[in-house]
């Protein structure tokens, strides 16, 4: 798993992909900071609650080639015939993408430090935001990775991941229009963003943490299943 993690993480910096992702991420952090500073607000959550755009564009870029490229170039033959388990492969790739996401998130620390120099720091809110973003990012990465295991086309993987994240983004909108009470409950219960918003308000709810962690585990498990099934096809 460590070999795959290391390869995948360093591959991000050899392709434009990693840099594109970081550019989007950091541009966004800088822009958020600029607005906050020019308006004179000390609200780090503002930066985080608008991260959705980064996820929408950035995550598909991050995950599209993870498995698709391996399948297309047949390099998966090296991975699948090596003494590594399928879950080792999936988790190695997942953690590599999450690590790059973490590198992107490091810029928010810069934002936080700069903001703190203007006003009293809100450490707990900031930490809540970090955890929330990492969890939601992880959940979307797991979903993107899962989609990437299903196709050998990077473009298809990217577009599909984009659509899925967009779907989750709009889920709250759907929920408010849903005519039946149970539908509203269902949609809000799987809504990523209402849970994420609780994090940005500095609320650390175990239910939310468990929710995102389960999404990560479930989709990584599904990715393993897809790889397993490919062998039998």
């Amino acid at each position: 798993m460590t070999a795959i993690f290391k390869r995948e993480f360093s591959a991000y910096f050899k392709n434009p992909i990693g840099w594109v992702f970081l550019a989007i991420f950091w541009l966004f952090c800088g822009w958020g900071l600029f607005i906050l500073v020019s308006a004179g607000y000390n609200m780090i959550s503002y930066v985080f609650s608008n991260m959705i755009i980064v996820l929408l564009i950035g995550i598909p870029v991050l995950t599209m080639r993870l498995m698709s490229e391996e399948i297309r170039m047949k390099t998966d033959q090296a991975l699948l015939t090596a003494p590594v388990s399928l879950s080792g492969i999936v988790w190695g790739k997942f953690l590599a993408a999450l690590a790059l996401f973490g590198v992107g998130m490091a810029m928010t620390v810069v934002d936080f430090i700069i903001l703190s120099s203007f006003a009293s720091p809100q450490v707990s809110i900031f930490v809540g935001n970090l955890i929330g973003l990492a969890l939601m990012g992880g959940a979307f990465i797991a979903i993107g990775l899962f989609i990437s295991t299903m196709t050998q086309s990077q473009l298809a993987a990217a577009i599909l991941s984009f659509a899925v994240i967009l779907f989750f983004y709009m889920l709250d909108g759907f929920a408010s229009y849903a005519p039946w009470g149970w539908a509203v409950d269902l949609l809000t219960s799987i809504s990523f963003f209402s849970r994420y918003n609780e994090f940005t308000n500095g609320i650390l709810d175990y239910g939310n943490i468990i929710f995102f962690a389960s999404v990560i585990f479930i989709f990584n498990f599904l990715s393993v299943r897809v790889l397993e099934r490919r062998r039998w096809s």
Partner: peptide, 13 residues
């Protein structure tokens, strides 16, 4: 040790 029909090489390494 396996050499597949198409060598599994990562072009970016």
């Amino acid at each position: 040790g396996y050499l597949p029909e198409q060598p599994p090489l990562y072009q970016d390494m």
